[in-house]
């Protein structure tokens, strides 16, 4: 495992993007930082600028207005940067799929910019914080797979939290 991947597993700066969510997903995301889950134990913190981010946490259906902004945000991040789609809205636009204001799905919008983007999907309306933690572990497993190593992220202490 390269040192870059190791540090990415020990320290993850997250930038939260709301592209038309109902705010319920956002509340669940903030819950990750509360004493109950406290993901700072694993070096995961929210940051204020996309340039600092290692992960974009996207919630919402990606409206027509928000779509170009989301793409611009993804371009602004320093790579490697992964994307986590949080909530049914971000996954498939849910019941809003045919609405007048809906743009493309979050993953389609991102893939239009970078076809090789690493995207994790966290279903739920809203997903439980445990599910988001599991999403982060899946991302690490994928990164390890891409780096050619055996996936060992399941042994990470975070996996323990996700299982409970």
């Amino acid at each position: 495992m390269s040192w870059k991947l190791w540090t990415l597993k020990k320290s993850l700066f997250v930038y939260h993007v709301n592209v038309g969510a109902c705010n319920n997903c956002d509340i669940e995301i903030v819950e990750l930082l509360t004493p109950q889950y406290d993901v700072e134990r694993f070096g995961i913190v929210l940051v204020g600028s996309p340039r600092h981010a290692d992960a974009l946490l996207v919630s919402g259906i990606c409206t027509r207005q928000a779509e170009p902004r989301l793409q611009e945000l993804y371009r602004a991040t320093a790579k490697p940067c992964v994307v986590l789609c949080v909530g049914s809205c971000a996954l498939s636009q849910g019941v809003f799929a045919d609405a007048y204001h809906a743009g493309h799905c979050v993953d389609e919008a991102i893939r239009a910019v970078d076809p090789n983007a690493i995207i994790a999907y966290v279903p739920g309306c809203p997903p439980k914080p445990e599910a988001m933690i599991l999403g982060v572990i899946k991302v690490w497993e994928k990164l390890e797979e891409l780096a050619g190593g055996k996936p060992a992220a399941a042994a990470h202490p975070l996996a323990e939290v996700a299982r409970t």
């Binding site: 990415l8 020990k10 320290s11």
Partner: peptide, 19 residues
């Protein structure tokens, strides 16, 4: 909360170096 482990600031720096 519990807070980050003692090596966290150093790892943050190291990670930023690799980006």
């Amino acid at each position: 909360r519990v807070g980050p482990p003692w090596y966290q600031p150093a790892v943050d720096c190291l990670k930023l170096m690799g980006k």
